[in-house]
Protein backbone atom coordinates (compact mmCIF):
# COMPACT_ATOMS: atom_id res chain seq x y z
CA UNK A 1 0.00 0.00 0.00
CA UNK A 2 1.25 3.45 -0.85
CA UNK A 3 1.87 5.97 1.91
CA UNK A 4 -0.85 8.23 0.48
CA UNK A 5 -3.39 5.41 0.52
CA UNK A 6 -2.38 4.33 4.03
CA UNK A 7 -2.85 7.88 5.24
CA UNK A 8 -6.26 7.98 3.61
CA UNK A 9 -7.30 4.69 5.28
CA UNK A 10 -6.21 5.95 8.69
CA UNK A 11 -8.05 9.25 8.34
CA UNK A 12 -11.18 7.47 7.15
CA UNK A 13 -10.99 5.01 10.07
CA UNK A 14 -10.75 7.87 12.56
CA UNK A 15 -13.60 9.65 10.76
CA UNK A 16 -15.74 6.53 11.12
CA UNK A 17 -15.15 6.49 14.87
CA UNK A 18 -15.90 10.19 15.17
CA UNK A 19 -19.16 9.87 13.27
CA UNK A 20 -20.32 7.08 15.52
CA UNK A 21 -18.98 8.21 18.87
CA UNK A 22 -21.48 6.54 21.16
CA UNK A 23 -21.27 3.08 19.62
CA UNK A 24 -17.50 3.40 19.35
CA UNK A 25 -17.32 4.21 23.04
CA UNK A 26 -19.53 1.24 23.88
CA UNK A 27 -17.27 -0.98 21.78
CA UNK A 28 -14.11 0.30 23.44
CA UNK A 29 -15.72 -0.33 26.84
CA UNK A 30 -16.69 -3.91 26.12
CA UNK A 31 -13.21 -4.65 24.77
CA UNK A 32 -11.72 -3.06 27.88
CA UNK A 33 -14.05 -5.05 30.15
CA UNK A 34 -13.11 -8.28 28.42
CA UNK A 35 -9.43 -7.52 28.75
CA UNK A 36 -9.82 -6.56 32.40
CA UNK A 37 -11.40 -9.90 33.21
CA UNK A 38 -8.63 -11.55 31.24
CA UNK A 39 -6.10 -9.51 33.21
CA UNK A 40 -7.55 -10.54 36.57
CA UNK A 41 -7.44 -14.21 35.66
CA UNK A 42 -3.99 -13.83 34.19
CA UNK A 43 -2.70 -12.23 37.38
CA UNK A 44 -4.30 -14.95 39.52
CA UNK A 45 -2.76 -17.70 37.42
CA UNK A 46 0.67 -16.10 37.41
CA UNK A 47 0.61 -15.66 41.18
CA UNK A 48 -0.60 -19.15 41.95
CA UNK A 49 2.01 -20.56 39.62
CA UNK A 50 4.73 -18.44 41.19
CA UNK A 51 3.77 -19.51 44.70
CA UNK A 52 3.47 -23.14 43.70
CA UNK A 53 7.03 -22.90 42.52
CA UNK A 54 8.04 -21.62 45.96
CA UNK A 55 6.23 -24.51 47.56
CA UNK A 56 7.90 -27.05 45.32
CA UNK A 57 11.29 -25.98 46.61
CA UNK A 58 10.28 -26.60 50.21
CA UNK A 59 11.15 -29.91 51.89
CA UNK A 60 8.48 -32.40 51.07
CA UNK A 61 8.34 -33.93 54.55
CA UNK A 62 8.68 -32.37 57.99
CA UNK A 63 9.14 -34.80 60.89
CA UNK A 64 9.34 -34.31 64.66
CA UNK A 65 10.49 -36.84 67.22
CA UNK A 66 9.07 -37.10 70.76
CA UNK A 67 10.78 -34.45 72.89
CA UNK A 68 11.51 -37.05 75.54
CA UNK A 69 12.93 -39.63 73.15
CA UNK A 70 16.28 -40.92 74.39
CA UNK A 71 19.57 -40.66 72.54
CA UNK A 72 19.46 -44.28 71.42
CA UNK A 73 16.06 -43.91 69.84
CA UNK A 74 17.11 -40.72 68.10
CA UNK A 75 20.19 -42.46 66.78
CA UNK A 76 18.02 -45.22 65.38
CA UNK A 77 15.75 -42.67 63.71
CA UNK A 78 18.66 -40.94 62.05
CA UNK A 79 20.08 -44.26 60.91
CA UNK A 80 16.74 -45.11 59.37
CA UNK A 81 16.80 -41.83 57.42
CA UNK A 82 20.36 -42.48 56.24
CA UNK A 83 19.64 -45.91 54.81
CA UNK A 84 16.24 -45.08 53.32
CA UNK A 85 16.62 -45.04 49.51
CA UNK A 86 13.60 -42.84 48.79
CA UNK A 87 15.21 -39.95 50.69
CA UNK A 88 17.44 -37.64 48.68
CA UNK A 89 18.62 -35.53 51.58
CA UNK A 90 17.54 -34.42 54.99
CA UNK A 91 18.33 -31.61 57.37
CA UNK A 92 18.43 -32.12 61.11
CA UNK A 93 16.96 -29.40 63.33
CA UNK A 94 18.42 -29.87 66.80
CA UNK A 95 16.76 -28.90 70.07
CA UNK A 96 18.94 -25.77 70.02
CA UNK A 97 17.64 -24.91 66.55
CA UNK A 98 14.08 -25.33 67.79
CA UNK A 99 14.79 -23.05 70.74
CA UNK A 100 16.21 -20.36 68.47
CA UNK A 101 13.19 -20.62 66.17
CA UNK A 102 10.82 -20.39 69.12
CA UNK A 103 12.54 -17.29 70.41
CA UNK A 104 12.32 -15.78 66.93
CA UNK A 105 8.61 -16.50 66.77
CA UNK A 106 7.90 -15.04 70.20
CA UNK A 107 10.05 -12.01 69.57
CA UNK A 108 12.00 -9.92 72.10
CA UNK A 109 9.04 -9.01 74.17
CA UNK A 110 7.44 -12.37 74.75
CA UNK A 111 10.59 -14.46 74.91
CA UNK A 112 10.77 -13.68 78.62
CA UNK A 113 8.31 -16.54 79.20
CA UNK A 114 11.06 -18.92 78.09
CA UNK A 115 13.33 -17.80 80.88
CA UNK A 116 14.42 -20.58 83.12
CA UNK A 117 13.33 -23.21 80.63
CA UNK A 118 15.92 -25.35 78.92
CA UNK A 119 15.51 -26.78 75.47
CA UNK A 120 14.85 -30.32 76.60
CA UNK A 121 11.08 -29.98 76.15
CA UNK A 122 11.59 -29.24 72.46
CA UNK A 123 11.71 -31.95 69.79
CA UNK A 124 14.44 -32.91 67.39
CA UNK A 125 13.06 -32.38 63.90
CA UNK A 126 13.98 -33.24 60.32
CA UNK A 127 13.29 -31.67 56.95
CA UNK A 128 13.34 -34.40 54.39
CA UNK A 129 13.56 -34.13 50.64
CA UNK A 130 12.65 -37.14 48.52
CA UNK A 131 14.07 -38.31 45.24
CA UNK A 132 10.54 -38.55 43.87
CA UNK A 133 7.79 -36.36 45.33
CA UNK A 134 5.32 -39.07 44.27
CA UNK A 135 6.63 -41.14 47.21
CA UNK A 136 5.51 -38.51 49.76
CA UNK A 137 2.45 -40.41 50.91
CA UNK A 138 3.96 -43.87 51.46
CA UNK A 139 7.19 -42.43 52.86
CA UNK A 140 5.19 -40.44 55.42
CA UNK A 141 3.22 -43.57 56.31
CA UNK A 142 6.43 -45.54 56.83
CA UNK A 143 8.03 -42.76 58.90
CA UNK A 144 5.05 -42.66 61.22
CA UNK A 145 5.75 -46.32 62.12
CA UNK A 146 9.33 -45.57 63.17
CA UNK A 147 9.79 -45.68 66.94
CA UNK A 148 10.32 -42.25 68.51
CA UNK A 149 8.64 -40.33 65.66
CA UNK A 150 5.74 -38.17 66.79
CA UNK A 151 4.66 -35.96 63.89
CA UNK A 152 5.01 -36.41 60.12
CA UNK A 153 3.72 -33.71 57.78
CA UNK A 154 4.15 -33.33 54.10
CA UNK A 155 3.22 -30.54 51.73
CA UNK A 156 2.39 -32.79 48.82
CA UNK A 157 -1.29 -32.35 49.50
CA UNK A 158 -0.94 -28.62 49.25
CA UNK A 159 0.90 -28.88 45.97
CA UNK A 160 -1.61 -31.07 44.24
CA UNK A 161 -4.44 -29.00 45.66
CA UNK A 162 -2.92 -25.83 44.28
CA UNK A 163 -2.26 -27.42 40.92
CA UNK A 164 -5.84 -28.57 40.79
CA UNK A 165 -7.13 -25.09 41.74
CA UNK A 166 -4.84 -23.61 39.12
CA UNK A 167 -6.20 -25.80 36.36
CA UNK A 168 -9.75 -25.00 37.42
CA UNK A 169 -9.08 -21.29 37.34
CA UNK A 170 -7.45 -21.65 33.95
CA UNK A 171 -10.40 -23.57 32.54
CA UNK A 172 -12.95 -21.19 34.03
CA UNK A 173 -11.09 -18.14 32.82
CA UNK A 174 -10.68 -19.60 29.33
CA UNK A 175 -14.43 -20.14 29.07
CA UNK A 176 -15.33 -16.77 30.51
CA UNK A 177 -12.84 -14.92 28.33
CA UNK A 178 -14.10 -16.76 25.28
CA UNK A 179 -17.67 -15.71 26.04
CA UNK A 180 -16.61 -12.12 26.63
CA UNK A 181 -14.56 -12.10 23.45
CA UNK A 182 -17.51 -13.35 21.44
CA UNK A 183 -19.65 -10.59 22.95
CA UNK A 184 -17.04 -7.98 22.10
CA UNK A 185 -16.72 -9.23 18.55
CA UNK A 186 -20.49 -9.10 18.19
CA UNK A 187 -20.75 -5.56 19.51
CA UNK A 188 -17.88 -4.33 17.37
CA UNK A 189 -19.31 -5.93 14.27
CA UNK A 190 -22.59 -4.22 15.07
CA UNK A 191 -20.84 -0.88 15.45
CA UNK A 192 -19.08 -1.32 12.14
CA UNK A 193 -22.34 -2.40 10.54
CA UNK A 194 -23.81 0.95 11.53
CA UNK A 195 -20.91 2.83 9.93
CA UNK A 196 -21.14 0.68 6.83
CA UNK A 197 -24.84 1.51 6.65
CA UNK A 198 -24.18 5.23 7.18
CA UNK A 199 -21.65 5.13 4.35
CA UNK A 200 -23.56 2.91 1.93
CA UNK A 201 -24.00 5.70 -0.62
CA UNK A 202 -20.29 6.39 -0.51
CA UNK A 203 -19.53 2.69 -0.87
CA UNK A 204 -21.78 2.51 -3.94
CA UNK A 205 -19.98 5.46 -5.50
CA UNK A 206 -16.61 3.93 -4.68
CA UNK A 207 -17.58 0.73 -6.44
CA UNK A 208 -18.63 2.64 -9.55
CA UNK A 209 -15.39 4.53 -9.76
CA UNK A 210 -13.40 1.31 -9.56
CA UNK A 211 -12.40 0.98 -5.92
CA UNK A 212 -11.28 -2.54 -5.03
CA UNK A 213 -13.04 -4.39 -2.22
CA UNK A 214 -10.00 -3.98 -0.03
CA UNK A 215 -9.84 -0.26 -0.64
CA UNK A 216 -13.42 -0.08 0.61
CA UNK A 217 -12.80 -2.45 3.51
CA UNK A 218 -9.63 -0.93 4.94
CA UNK A 219 -11.20 2.10 6.66
CA UNK A 220 -13.60 -0.23 8.49
CA UNK A 221 -10.79 -2.55 9.53
CA UNK A 222 -8.87 0.48 10.75
CA UNK A 223 -11.96 1.50 12.72
CA UNK A 224 -12.08 -1.92 14.39
CA UNK A 225 -8.34 -1.89 15.02
CA UNK A 226 -8.51 1.52 16.69
CA UNK A 227 -11.38 0.36 18.91
CA UNK A 228 -9.37 -2.72 19.90
CA UNK A 229 -6.26 -0.69 20.60
CA UNK A 230 -8.09 1.90 22.72
CA UNK A 231 -9.71 -0.91 24.72
CA UNK A 232 -6.31 -2.55 25.25
CA UNK A 233 -4.62 0.64 26.42
CA UNK A 234 -7.46 1.61 28.74
CA UNK A 235 -7.64 -1.77 30.43
CA UNK A 236 -3.86 -2.04 30.67
CA UNK A 237 -3.68 1.14 32.73
CA UNK A 238 -6.66 0.25 34.90
CA UNK A 239 -5.46 -3.28 35.65
CA UNK A 240 -1.77 -2.52 36.22
CA UNK A 241 -2.59 0.44 38.44
CA UNK A 242 -5.10 -1.50 40.54
CA UNK A 243 -2.74 -4.45 40.77
CA UNK A 244 0.25 -2.39 41.86
CA UNK A 245 -1.83 -0.88 44.67
CA UNK A 246 -2.91 -4.37 45.78
CA UNK A 247 0.61 -5.80 45.55
CA UNK A 248 2.12 -3.07 47.72
CA UNK A 249 -0.46 -3.52 50.46
CA UNK A 250 -0.59 -7.31 50.28
CA UNK A 251 3.14 -7.89 50.33
CA UNK A 252 3.70 -5.47 53.23
CA UNK A 253 0.94 -7.18 55.12
CA UNK A 254 2.35 -10.63 54.39
CA UNK A 255 5.86 -9.65 55.49
CA UNK A 256 4.48 -8.74 58.90
CA UNK A 257 3.28 -12.28 59.53
CA UNK A 258 5.71 -14.17 57.35
CA UNK A 259 8.01 -15.21 60.17
CA UNK A 260 5.28 -17.36 61.66
CA UNK A 261 4.23 -18.94 58.42
CA UNK A 262 6.10 -21.78 56.90
CA UNK A 263 5.29 -20.86 53.27
CA UNK A 264 4.21 -17.31 52.91
CA UNK A 265 2.62 -16.07 49.71
CA UNK A 266 4.22 -13.21 47.86
CA UNK A 267 2.55 -11.49 44.89
CA UNK A 268 4.45 -11.11 41.66
CA UNK A 269 5.63 -7.53 41.13
CA UNK A 270 3.61 -5.55 38.56
CA UNK A 271 6.78 -4.76 36.63
CA UNK A 272 7.36 -8.46 36.05
CA UNK A 273 4.06 -8.94 34.26
CA UNK A 274 3.45 -5.50 32.70
CA UNK A 275 5.13 -6.17 29.36
CA UNK A 276 3.51 -9.55 28.88
CA UNK A 277 0.16 -8.13 29.90
CA UNK A 278 0.45 -5.18 27.51
CA UNK A 279 1.49 -7.45 24.67
CA UNK A 280 -1.36 -9.88 25.20
CA UNK A 281 -3.78 -6.96 25.58
CA UNK A 282 -2.73 -5.45 22.28
CA UNK A 283 -2.84 -8.81 20.52
CA UNK A 284 -6.22 -9.81 21.94
CA UNK A 285 -7.67 -6.29 21.54
CA UNK A 286 -6.57 -6.15 17.92
CA UNK A 287 -7.83 -9.66 17.24
CA UNK A 288 -11.25 -8.74 18.64
CA UNK A 289 -11.39 -5.40 16.79
CA UNK A 290 -10.25 -6.67 13.43
CA UNK A 291 -12.32 -9.85 13.58
CA UNK A 292 -15.41 -7.86 14.59
CA UNK A 293 -15.07 -5.47 11.69
CA UNK A 294 -14.11 -8.20 9.24
CA UNK A 295 -17.28 -10.14 10.03
CA UNK A 296 -19.29 -6.99 9.45
CA UNK A 297 -17.71 -5.99 6.16
CA UNK A 298 -17.86 -9.54 4.85
CA UNK A 299 -21.57 -9.58 5.53
CA UNK A 300 -22.43 -6.08 4.40
CA UNK A 301 -19.96 -5.14 1.70
CA UNK A 302 -20.38 -8.01 -0.71
CA UNK A 303 -22.07 -6.57 -3.80
Amino acid sequence: MKAETAKYMLTEGVTNINRNKLMSLASVSIVAATLQVFGIFYICVVNIAANTAVLRDEPEIYMECYPNADAKTLEAVEKYLQQEERIALYEKLTKADAMARLKEILGEKDSSILEGLDESFLPVAYRIKLNDPEDSQNMADDLRKVTGVEIVEFSGDTISFRIRILSWIQAASAIMILILMLNSILIISNTIKITVFARRKEIGIMKHIGATDWFIRWPFLVEGAIIGLLGAIASFFVVTYAYSVIVTRFNTDMQLISSQVFNFISLVKPGQIALKLLLSYVIIGEAIGILGSYISIRKHLVE
Binding site: Y8, E202, G204, I205, M206, K207, H208, I209, G210, F215
Partner: peptide, 30 residues
Protein backbone atom coordinates in the same frame (compact mmCIF):
# COMPACT_ATOMS: atom_id res chain seq x y z
CA UNK B 1 -12.49 -2.94 -15.59
CA UNK B 2 -14.56 -0.07 -14.13
CA UNK B 3 -11.53 2.19 -14.18
CA UNK B 4 -11.70 2.02 -17.97
CA UNK B 5 -15.18 3.60 -17.81
CA UNK B 6 -16.71 6.83 -16.64
CA UNK B 7 -20.23 6.56 -15.31
CA UNK B 8 -22.77 9.37 -14.81
CA UNK B 9 -26.20 8.94 -13.19
CA UNK B 10 -29.39 10.92 -13.08
CA UNK B 11 -28.95 11.65 -9.37
CA UNK B 12 -25.29 12.85 -9.65
CA UNK B 13 -24.09 10.65 -6.76
CA UNK B 14 -21.62 13.12 -5.32
CA UNK B 15 -20.20 12.97 -1.79
CA UNK B 16 -21.84 15.87 0.01
CA UNK B 17 -19.15 16.19 2.67
CA UNK B 18 -16.40 16.59 0.10
CA UNK B 19 -15.63 19.65 -2.03
CA UNK B 20 -15.82 19.66 -5.82
CA UNK B 21 -12.06 19.16 -6.00
CA UNK B 22 -12.14 16.31 -3.48
CA UNK B 23 -15.05 14.61 -5.24
CA UNK B 24 -13.14 14.55 -8.49
CA UNK B 25 -9.87 13.65 -6.79
CA UNK B 26 -11.60 10.74 -5.10
CA UNK B 27 -11.99 8.92 -8.42
CA UNK B 28 -8.25 9.12 -8.85
CA UNK B 29 -7.44 8.33 -5.26
CA UNK B 30 -9.24 4.97 -5.31
Amino acid sequence: FRRSLGIVFQDFRLLNNKTVFENIAFALRV
